[in-house]
Amino acid sequence: KKIKIDLKKGPEGLGFTVVTRDSSIHGPGPIFVKNILPKGAAIKDGRLQSGDRILEVNGRDVTGRTQEELVAMLRSTKQGETASLVIAR
């Protein structure tokens, strides 16, 4: 099931960490939400869960991207702006 979640970045950030699983010589594996932090946009919104697979960030497919690339995409969202995620659960 795909779910679109918009998180408005506040002073505590987006409020979640990510982890890559099953990376191989063929490229990075899928990226999942690792933890929801006690402060930040994710816990206020309440929909994002540990174990959700991140498919898109701000309309860009993240398949084949590294964890570092995904984190850079999320960090490029400025405070007060919205990060738009599509996740699979």
Results as ranks from 00 to 15, higher is better:
39 K>I: 08
71 V>T: 15
28 P>Q: 04
41 A>H: 03
59 G>S: 08
45 D>Q: 07
34 K>Q: 13
70 L>H: 02
58 N>I: 01
82 T>V: 08
21 R>P: 15
43 I>N: 10
45 D>K: 01
63 T>A: 05
17 T>Y: 02
51 G>K: 06
32 F>S: 08
76 S>A: 07
48 L>R: 00
54 I>W: 00
15 G>P: 00
69 E>N: 06
13 G>K: 02
17 T>F: 03
2 K>T: 03
51 G>I: 01
28 P>R: 08
84 S>Y: 06
2 K>M: 06
54 I>Q: 00
18 V>M: 15
47 R>I: 04
32 F>Y: 09
71 V>Y: 15
79 Q>G: 12
55 L>A: 05
81 E>I: 03
66 T>V: 03
10 G>E: 15
26 H>C: 11
38 P>A: 13
45 D>N: 07
74 L>D: 08
83 A>Q: 12
54 I>K: 00
30 P>K: 11
34 K>C: 04
66 T>I: 06
87 I>R: 05
54 I>R: 00
53 R>S: 12
89 R>L: 00
51 G>H: 07
85 L>I: 08
73 M>D: 09
61 D>S: 10
74 L>T: 04
33 V>Y: 01
15 G>K: 00
7 L>C: 05
74 L>E: 05
18 V>R: 01
60 R>M: 08
71 V>G: 14
81 E>D: 12
57 V>W: 13
6 D>Y: 15
45 D>S: 12
42 A>E: 01
41 A>V: 10
74 L>Q: 03
52 D>R: 00
66 T>R: 04
30 P>A: 05
29 G>F: 10
80 G>I: 03
60 R>S: 06
49 Q>D: 05
36 I>E: 01
60 R>V: 04
54 I>Y: 00
48 L>H: 00
69 E>D: 12
30 P>L: 08
74 L>H: 01
84 S>K: 14
9 K>A: 14
60 R>F: 12
39 K>Y: 07
20 T>Q: 11
65 R>P: 05
44 K>W: 06
85 L>P: 02
57 V>Q: 01
54 I>M: 07
28 P>E: 12
23 S>G: 06
81 E>K: 10
65 R>M: 11
49 Q>T: 14
38 P>H: 14
51 G>E: 12
42 A>Q: 01
41 A>S: 13
37 L>H: 03
67 Q>F: 03
45 D>A: 02
7 L>H: 00
19 V>R: 15
20 T>W: 09
77 T>C: 09
4 K>T: 10
31 I>K: 08
89 R>E: 04
30 P>S: 06
34 K>F: 03
44 K>P: 02
71 V>E: 15
22 D>E: 09
25 I>C: 07
64 G>R: 07
86 V>C: 13
5 I>K: 00
3 I>S: 03
31 I>T: 10
78 K>H: 11
89 R>I: 00
75 R>M: 15
5 I>T: 01
64 G>C: 06
76 S>W: 07
89 R>A: 04
35 N>P: 00
88 A>I: 15
14 L>R: 00
67 Q>H: 15
67 Q>I: 04
82 T>S: 13
72 A>N: 06
4 K>A: 04
87 I>T: 05
19 V>E: 15
19 V>C: 14
9 K>W: 14
32 F>G: 02
39 K>H: 10
37 L>E: 15
26 H>Y: 08
73 M>Q: 06
73 M>T: 05
33 V>F: 01
31 I>G: 07
84 S>F: 11
62 V>H: 07
59 G>V: 02
88 A>D: 12
80 G>R: 05
21 R>Q: 13
10 G>R: 07
70 L>F: 10
56 E>K: 12
2 K>W: 02
46 G>L: 03
